[in-house]
Simulated scan of single mutants.
Amino acid sequence: MRAFELKAIIRQSGCELTRIGRSRNWRLSASREQLLQISESLRQHEEPSWQWVLALLESKIGTYTEADILEFVKRNPNISVNELVTLANCTVAQARQALDSYEFLE
């Protein structure tokens, strides 16, 4: 029954979750921001049986480059350092550098 809740959380983020043919395998089509949103939701629920999904998502998210973090700040100019660290999966120094770079662009 927890699988239905997991699928609902994934679909709430706006991702496309489809079954591959008639197999038990699933395909998730999502942007990096959507993957981050899903992983944050899964962390909040703290369901032990979902930890493998969380680990798989975090491995697929990868890391942001400095340019990616700056673009993220441009889209969300009022973001705090802590929010940026959480959402972009970067260090505090990288987040501060991106925020400072954005301020100098204005």
Rank of each mutant, 00 (worst) to 15 (best):
S31Q: 08
K60D: 11
R96M: 01
W52P: 07
E5G: 12
N76D: 09
N25H: 12
L42G: 08
W52G: 12
K60H: 12
E58G: 04
N78P: 09
Y102H: 02
P48G: 04
V81I: 12
R27D: 06
E106P: 07
A55N: 10
I79L: 06
L57G: 07
Q44S: 01
I10T: 04
I38P: 00
E33P: 07
G62E: 09
D68G: 11
W50F: 10
N76P: 00
R11P: 12
E40Y: 15
N78T: 02
L54F: 01
A3N: 15
V92W: 11
S80L: 10
A98I: 03
R2H: 12
F72P: 02
G62S: 10
A88H: 03
L6I: 15
P77Y: 04
R43P: 02
D68F: 11
D100R: 01
S13I: 07
L87I: 14
E40K: 15
L105A: 10
E103S: 04
S59G: 05
L84W: 01
T65P: 14
S13D: 06
W52R: 13
N25D: 13
E106Y: 07
Q12F: 13
N89M: 13
S31D: 06
E33G: 08
T65D: 14
R22G: 03
E33T: 08
R24C: 07
T65K: 15
E106S: 08
E66R: 14
G62T: 09
S13G: 10
E83A: 11
E46W: 03
S29C: 07
S23T: 03
L87P: 11
F4T: 14
I10P: 02
Q94E: 05
Y64M: 11
L105G: 08
S59V: 09
V73W: 05
L17Y: 05
T65Y: 14
A55R: 10
Q44P: 06
V81C: 12
L87M: 15
L87W: 14
P48T: 00
A88N: 01
L56Q: 01
N78V: 05
F4N: 14
E71H: 09
L35A: 03
F4D: 15
A88L: 04
Q97A: 04
N89T: 13
R27K: 08
C15W: 08
N76M: 03
Y64W: 12
S39R: 09
V81L: 11
L6P: 13
L84H: 01
D100H: 06
E106C: 05
T65G: 15
S101V: 06
D68I: 12
R75P: 00
R2P: 10
T63E: 10
Q34I: 04
K7G: 13
S13N: 08
R2M: 08
R22Q: 07
G14Y: 00
I79P: 07
S29D: 03
E5R: 12
K7M: 14
A93S: 08
A93I: 06
G14K: 08
E71N: 11
E47Y: 01
A98F: 03
C15M: 06
V81N: 11
N76V: 00
L36K: 15
S13W: 03
E66T: 13
D68L: 12
R2C: 09
W26H: 05
